[in-house]
Design a protein around this nucleic acid. Structure first.
Lengths: 139, 139
DNA sequence: CTAAATGCTCTAGTCTCTGGAGGTTTTATG
DNA sequence: CATAAAACCTCCAGAGACTAGAGCATTTAG
């Protein structure tokens, strides 16, 4: 039943105070209750939601995608037809990112190993990053 | 030895024309040669570089990180001390992302499966995204 | 009870693009 | 070769997602 000030929320979720107000402004966070003096007081649920938003943003999802996630969870009994499409789209996106990041992980690890002697002989990061064979999507 | 117009570069790298000009403006791409009429003509190398930039952006690296990658590759014989730090930072970042994305992949897959009957019983996406146990970094 | 810390609104600025207006150069076609 | 369509140029404005500061009000710790 504890309430949080905007500053406490900010600390706990690692989201800057103006950003929290911005999320409220664009409708990602519900406007919270206010004290008599007009300051925001958030319930626990707001903390959870903000935490989710922060993680999703960190993973590279757009605000619009997050809106979709929220909508999905708000209507857990909704018909799945459109939801399936959205989910599948996100799943492919996620798998794609994982694949690319793994290729990059391999190269970064190799770089660290080959760097033992104080010099980089062959930096392959740029090659890996520009290698079209790593891509799922054709372009 | 072939040269590319900005439009051809745009198509091949899947980067919009104004974005290419923007990258030039902020110094990510070298200003290319111009025709007598003032149009940009890019060498093969520019295509490779732009492709690299596009992939790195797509993977979520900041423009500053890309600048670092470019700097690294421009000085392949530079001492590794600072390079190691940068590389290690990126490696941890990459591994972190992979971890989170995998958790999300699991949930998205589960959602699709449980969705067979036209209803979503339990949408766990938000929980997964807000779960602090998934995090590497403490916050 | 008061001073420091935190919060409020409002405005303006940053970064990374993206699009349009108005005009010029290239390229394809008759 | 002439011309019309396509692509290009610069410059400016706007979008998305924040971020910071000014000026003032409210909370909270001592």
């Amino acid at each position: 039943m504890k309430e949080y000030s905007i500053g406490q929320l900010s600390q706990q979720c690692d989201v800057k105070v103006p950003t929290i107000r911005y999320y409220e402004e664009i409708g990602l966070l519900e406007p919270p209750a206010r004290t008599a003096g007009g300051q925001r007081r958030y319930p626990q649920a707001a903390r959870d939601r903000l935490s989710m938003i922060a993680h999703a943003r960190d993973l590279g999802f757009s605000i619009d995608s997050i809106r979709e996630f929220i909508r999905m969870s708000n209507h857990p009994a909704a018909p799945c037809d459109d939801l399936d499409l959205i989910t599948e789209k996100h799943l492919m996106d996620v798998q794609n990112r994982i694949k690319k990041l793994k290729a990059l992980e391999t190269e970064l690890t190799a770089m660290l190993k080959s760097c033992d002697h104080g010099r980089v002989a062959d930096c392959r990061i740029l090659q890996v990053l520009s290698d079209h064979d790593q891509c799922q999507t054709q372009h």
